[in-house]
């Protein structure tokens, strides 16, 4: 079997990097996209040492999503083809600041939802035509119910989850797998300021979970697993009660 070709968009995310290490260890070919060339080079060197057959990179900014079509074409010229695409970028907006700032709310929504949806759209076209492959995106358990502490982030992630669901339905006949990855609390630089409790998982554990979910062609995956059950409870609390809670 020849090496799988993996495209990772937002490759400098701590979680994506851990998933990339799993792909590297099996000898996959990787193409990494992120904003910083310096950081891409560090990741590429690391993944080559860890066993990747080849690693190429391109500088990309999620904000330039209107050119996603052209960017994907350029990437595929470098890669030849892709078997798996993983969208991993994201920011954690300051909810309180967003409430006071319309521009901030919209720009956070663009980064975490609109730009992701743009890329999913062009990736869907590519994989559908190819007649196979895996599209995966990192969303969040926060996208399953709006809470006052985090609803800008939650709404964006929820929008992506719903979009993925539709895409999965559309791409099923083409044999394309669409994976919705929903992590809970993950200990990464994005969450450095938080106090960590029992529910927190390492980026390594979540990254390995993503690798397994893609290999097993899962549809919706909670990382770690216990979040499925936590969210089962949270989504079933009646709204008349939920609106009174401080979550």
């Amino acid at each position: 079997m020849s090496a799988r070709k993996i495209l990772i968009l937002g490759a400098t995310s701590a979680i994506a990097e851990q998933a990339a290490r799993c792909f590297a260890a099996e000898g996959a070919v990787l193409h990494l996209c992120a904003r910083s060339q310096v950081h891409l080079e560090q990741l590429a060197a690391d993944l080559r040492v860890r066993g990747a057959s080849a690693v190429t990179t391109s500088v990309f900014d999620a904000g330039g999503y209107v050119n996603a079509n052209q960017q994907l074409t350029d990437i595929l010229i470098q890669m030849g083809h892709a078997d798996v695409a993983l969208i991993a970028w994201g920011t954690l907006p300051d909810q309180k600041a967003c409430e006071q700032d319309l521009e901030k709310t919209l720009s956070e929504f663009v980064t975490n939802a609109t730009a992701v949806i743009a890329w999913l759209t062009v990736l869907a076209g590519y994989f559908e035509q190819r007649g196979g492959g895996v599209i995966a995106a990192i969303t969040s358990v926060a996208g399953m119910r709006g809470r006052q502490s985090n609803y800008v982030y939650g709404a964006a992630k929820g929008a992506v989850s719903l979009y993925l669901q539709g895409l999965r339905n559309r791409l099923y006949p083409a044999g394309v797998t669409v994976v919705d990855i929903r992590p809970g609390f993950v200990d990464t630089p994005m969450t450095q300021a938080f106090r960590k409790g029992l529910l927190w998982a390492s980026a390594q554990r979540v990254g390995q979970g993503i690798y397994r979910a893609i290999n097993r062609r899962r549809q919706v995956v909670y990382l770690p697993w216990f979040w499925r059950w936590i969210m089962l409870v949270i989504t079933r609390i009646p709204e008349s009660l939920f609106k009174r809670l401080k979550l």
Partner: peptide, 9 residues
């Protein structure tokens, strides 16, 4: 702990 990249082997 996050500065854990291999550079060359």
């Amino acid at each position: 702990r996050a500065l854990d990249h291999f550079v060359e082997f």
